[in-house]
Amino acid sequence: MTSFTLADVRERTYKSRDAWWTVFLVDPLASRLVVWTANRTNITPNQITFGAGVLGVGAAVSFALADWPWLVLGALLFHLSFVLDCMDGKIARLKNNGSVFGAWVDFVFDRVRFFGCMMALLIGQWAATGQVAYLVLAPVVIFLDLFRYLNGSQVAKTRSAMREKLRAAAEGRAVDGTVDDPESTETAEGRRGEGEDGENGEDRVVFMEEVLRDNPELKAEDVRNGRHPAGARVIDVHQGFSRRFGAYERVRDALLRSRVRPHLFSGIEFEMFVCVVAPLTALLSLVTGLSSLIIPVTVFSCLALAAFEVVIIYKLWLATRDFTRELARLQA
């Protein structure tokens, strides 16, 4: 019988970069639970997902009851549900027993859990306090959660399209400078069947973000100076952003060494601040006698997520300009 170790879990299931909430507050617990679960039980990833769903329902019910002990319990259950939600993927990668349908279930459950718990929290507080602000916040939170999913997906497609076209240009193929249809890059990928290195292996290109992701010990300046293991031409389509914000690269390099991605307030932090931090402030209100902090924390979460989404869009805009310049240089 295979005996998995903590080192196996870290090597085979940890992402090269992740949200800081996951890195510091989830992975240390989830990885140890994965070792015990994988070595001592035959629990499947889908069964873990079901368990996370049960905890999610418990969190929603607790939030709906609105009193401070229930709010604290709901926050703990929501966090534990997220820990299990991370465990199912780790078990699947560790034991190679995941499924396509299981990945779909995991994704859908994540959205339903957050939506249900968030609505239970805000509606429960409105019913208990009569403050209309809770009802006003609900559609704002829903909109931002949906927007960040749509924006993240489209940004990823656009970046992929730019990379594929730059690779094609480096191989000497004719490409245009439009990226309005990211799906069209599938054709370019198919034509690369002759080999990503081009005909003679000399034109292969890699991208700065890929090199830094796979080699977190490197700095961007090291890569620009050729001190990297990729052995290929490195293209950086984020030069414009780095030039405008000189400290960004230093912060990014430091964060990546701890597996933390620079997007410091992503969807994960958004969910956790709304459904864990906000209800936990009930303890602070109880001790200090101050009014509830659920509204201020939720408003902060909305503003922080919106700010980071704006930065992503601005960074993408600058990247498209770098893409146009780099494409022209390669074609010349």
Score class of each variant (00 low, 15 high):
Arg148Ala: 11
Leu144Glu: 04
Ser153Val: 01
Val155Ser: 14
Ala168Glu: 05
Ala168Thr: 11
Ser184Lys: 07
Arg163Ala: 04
Glu183Val: 05
Val112Thr: 13
Val132Ile: 06
Met162Ile: 11
Lys165Trp: 10
Pro139Tyr: 15
Ile123Gln: 11
Thr129Ser: 13
Ala161Arg: 00
Asp145Gly: 07
Val132Pro: 04
Glu183Pro: 09
Arg192Cys: 02
Gln125Thr: 09
Ala188Leu: 12
Val179Pro: 13
Leu121Ala: 00
Lys165Cys: 03
Gln154Asn: 06
Glu186Ile: 15
Gly130Lys: 03
Trp126Asn: 05
Thr187Ser: 00
Thr185Gln: 01
Val132Ser: 11
Ser153Asn: 12
Ala133Thr: 03
Met162Asn: 14
Gly152His: 06
Ser160Tyr: 06
Ser153Met: 15
Val136Ala: 06
Ser153Trp: 12
Thr178Val: 02
Glu189Ser: 10
Leu135Ser: 09
Thr187Tyr: 02
Glu189His: 01
Glu196Trp: 04
Thr129Asp: 13
Trp126His: 10
Ala161Lys: 00
Val175His: 05
Glu186Asp: 12
Leu122Pro: 10
Val175Trp: 14
Val140Gly: 03
Ala120Gln: 03
Leu144Gly: 04
Glu194Arg: 15
Phe143Gln: 00
Ala127Trp: 04
Ile123Arg: 10
Ala120Gly: 08
Gly190Asn: 15
Ala156Cys: 05
Val175Asn: 01
Val141Trp: 04
Cys117Glu: 07
Met119Arg: 11
Arg163Asn: 03
Ala169Val: 03
Lys165Leu: 08
Arg159Asn: 14
Gln154Arg: 13
Asp176Leu: 10
Glu189Pro: 02
Glu186Phe: 08
Thr129His: 08
Leu146Lys: 05
Trp126Lys: 04
Gln154Glu: 14
